[in-house]
């Protein structure tokens, strides 16, 4: 009896190391504790043992059972380890490169736009939007640009044929559709829709009928700002652009106002910036933008009382700012989309 139990345990221990998978494990267990198993057979003999020897025999059987189960547990643990290892796979070489695409790039014009919006956001400006196909009223008439103004010529502005109709670009009267030459049209649409006080930015694509070269592009981008409130003064405009210059170019940036002429502002200025690190452009002052106090005629065109409200407006070319900020010397690079160019702004 003892001999047989001993032999079973030893056999179990002997075979345990050879078991490589769950199927083998089940067969292995069955060969001992299954219905036909050798250990089951010994247990069944318990009934044939004389009554007085039974406790002792039972005790031996139980000891052997514990030992078998210990063997099974050991095998089980070993198999679980193998299974986990198979799931985990071999150790990686953490120095290998990822085969996946790295994060993408945001176009430099978008980045500059975001930077400019960010600077004005801080002082309460938010973005307004409007269509790129505009009408003469929103692009010119409402901006105090007389009908014979050269900017309205077929030579300088793209027009759609007279028969064109847009279902989602509203007209004021029977004026023609054109491709907007500036984003000031958004200011007009916003002033017609919303009531002052207003503090908006209008970034977006604009078109002039120019032949493309290093500084002219078939289309370009502008961002304009408009502030309308009671008691807005020239000093407010200057303070805002001083803030902008310092945020954009650093604390040493300076701003110069040169009187100029725009139909939609009075007084009007062109604005030059100067800053230490702009020196390499070769000039002390660099023209950055145009600005001025909103002309009373513009307020009248949109139904805002110029006796009550005053305001300022400013506008700049996004490409121009990007060229200055990044030192890009040809505007066409922004539209060639060369990956080596785009990656530089990642």
């Amino acid at each position: 009896m003892d001999e047989q139990l001993k032999e079973i345990i030893e056999r179990a221990r002997g075979q345990a190391g050879e078991i490589a998978n769950r199927g083998g494990f089940e067969a292995f267990k069955a060969s001992f504790v299954g219905p036909q198993g050798s250990f089951t057979a010994l247990r069944k003999q318990l009934g044939t043992i004389p009554k007085e020897q039974r406790p002792e025999y039972g005790k031996r059987i139980n000891e052997a059972k514990d030992q078998l189960e210990a063997v099974f547990a050991e095998v089980n643990e070993r198999l679980e380890g193998m299974e986990l290892a198979a799931l985990i796979g071999p150790a990686v070489d953490p120095t290998l490169p990822s085969p996946d695409r790295p994060v993408g790039t945001v176009h430099p014009l978008t980045q500059i736009l975001e930077r400019i919006v960010g600077i004005f956001e801080k002082v309460g400006f938010t973005v307004a939007s409007g269509p790129e196909v505009e009408t003469e009223f929103f692009c010119f008439d409402a901006l105090n640009t007389p009908p014979e103004h050269p900017a309205r010529d077929l030579q300088d502005t793209y027009y759609m044929p007279d028969s064109t109709r847009f279902s989602n670009v509203s007209k004021h009267g029977e004026e023609r559709y054109l491709l907007r030459t500036h984003t000031s049209s958004v200011q007009i649409r916003t002033m017609l829709k919303e009531k002052p006080p207003l503090r908006i930015l209008s970034p977006g694509r604009t078109f002039r009928r120019d032949t493309a070269d290093a500084t002219h592009s078939a289309n370009f981008h502008q961002i304009e700002g408009l502030y309308v409130d009671k008691g807005v003064k020239v000093t407010d405009l200057k303070a805002m652009l001083d803030h902008f210059a310092r945020e954009l170019l650093g604390k040493d940036a300076k701003v110069r106002f040169r009187p100029h002429f725009f139909p939609y502002t009075e007084p009007s200025f062109e604005v030059d910036f100067s800053a230490e690190h702009l020196g390499k452009v070769g000039k002390k002052w660099i023209e950055i933008m145009g600005c001025g106090m909103v002309d009373p005629a513009v307020f009248e065109a949109v139904g805002i009382d110029p006796e009550v409200y005053t305001g300022y407006a400013f506008g700049m070319g996004i490409e121009r700012i990007a060229m200055i900020a990044y030192g890009v010397d040809d505007i066409r690079y922004f539209y060639q989309n060369d990956q080596r160019f785009l990656n530089q702004f990642a």
Binding site: R101, V103, E132, Y158, A218, N337
Partner: peptide, 15 residues
Amino acid sequence: YFRSRGFSEVYNYTL
């Protein structure tokens, strides 16, 4: 969204 998926933003002409 696109940047996080490894796309590069481009600008082409409207016309």
